[in-house]
Simulated assay, not measured.
Amino acid sequence: MNDTRNGFEKRAQRIKDKIMRTTLDMLRTSDPKRIRIADISKMAKVSQVTIYNYFGSKEALMREVFIGYIDKAIAEFIEFMDGHHTLKEKIEYIIFLEKEAYSDLPPGTIKDLVEEDPELAAYIEKVYREYTAPLVTRIIEEGKASGEISPDMPVENVLAFIQLYMNQYQAILAMAAQTPDREKFLEGMVHMFFYGICGKE
């Protein structure tokens, strides 16, 4: 009996994962508001009834897909921050955390999903409060202790400066795309973050 139940649960999980992967793929190229359960059903090759049985609604499906996407990004973020990287590399990762997401999920899609779903917005706020902010604060404190960040610089100011960069990442990436060497341009922006336009190290 247990083998039968386990087999059923594994098949059910595979179907659910397939639906979620299909939905994520569609979000990479389509406006969430334009995606219908019928479209997901056709692409995933499952019935609409199956999708409703597993998720209940399109909104619940979108939420679960995006939460999975965020959880994966946070796990990768934590792994990078705990790895053997320089402070400069860690700050670059933080500032341009979304540069990969930018090519994966369009920023407008992320914005629409969050604005349309208060539960999703609350989840992202919780993740920032419980994981992202404490980890970034720790990195800044370590930088101050090692002398890589001025010990007189309040953590709040460094966090605010990072936030300024992150708020403009779309514009920065658009500028980088216009240059002959995108990566070199982004490295220059990180260098300016640390040393200003005087370039003093």
Rank of each mutant, 00 (worst) to 15 (best):
R14V: 06
K42C: 07
E115G: 10
Y93I: 06
I197A: 14
V136C: 03
I124T: 07
I172M: 03
E116Y: 03
I35M: 08
Y165C: 15
D71V: 09
N53R: 10
F8Y: 15
E130T: 08
F55Y: 05
Q48K: 10
Y102K: 01
I35F: 08
M26P: 02
Q13V: 15
E116H: 12
G147Q: 04
V65Y: 03
S103V: 11
N157M: 06
Y69V: 11
V46S: 07
I124P: 09
L24Q: 05
N2C: 15
Y69N: 14
H191Q: 10
I15P: 01
M192W: 08
V114T: 05
N6T: 12
E59L: 07
A171P: 06
K90D: 02
A12P: 07
T50L: 09
I172H: 06
D25E: 15
K111S: 14
E183D: 15
Q170L: 10
A12H: 14
T109G: 07
M26T: 03
E142Q: 08
D181Q: 05
S57V: 08
Q48L: 09
E141H: 03
E89K: 12
K16T: 13
K200D: 12
L87V: 09
I124K: 07
I74Q: 04
Y131P: 04
A73C: 10
V155Y: 02
R36N: 14
D31R: 06
Y195I: 14
R28K: 09
L87S: 08
R129L: 03
D25T: 14
R14F: 10
Q170V: 14
I162V: 13
K144S: 00
V49W: 07
M20D: 00
Q170R: 14
E141M: 05
I78F: 12
I40M: 06
T29Q: 09
F185D: 00
L135G: 12
L159G: 00
Y102E: 02
F96W: 13
P106D: 11
V46D: 04
A12V: 14
R21A: 08
N157V: 15
T179G: 01
E141G: 00
E100V: 15
N53Q: 11
I67M: 11
P134I: 00
M81S: 03
M26R: 00
R36K: 14
L61A: 04
K126Y: 07
D82N: 03
E92G: 11
F80C: 12
I94R: 00
H191N: 12
I19E: 00
F77P: 02
T29R: 12
L61D: 01
A60Q: 11
L186R: 00
E76G: 06
K90C: 04
K33W: 12
I110L: 06
L186K: 01
A122H: 05
T22F: 00
T179Q: 08
F96A: 10
E201H: 13
E89T: 12
N6Y: 13
E79V: 09
D112Q: 13
Y128I: 14
H191P: 02
T132W: 11
A160L: 04
T132R: 06
K126F: 10
P154C: 04
G83M: 03
P107R: 03
I91T: 11
Y128F: 15
G188T: 01
P180K: 07
D17E: 11
I124M: 15
E142I: 05
R11K: 13
T22E: 02
M153D: 04
M153S: 05
I94W: 01
P154I: 05
E156K: 05
I51L: 05
A121E: 12
N2R: 15
I162S: 04
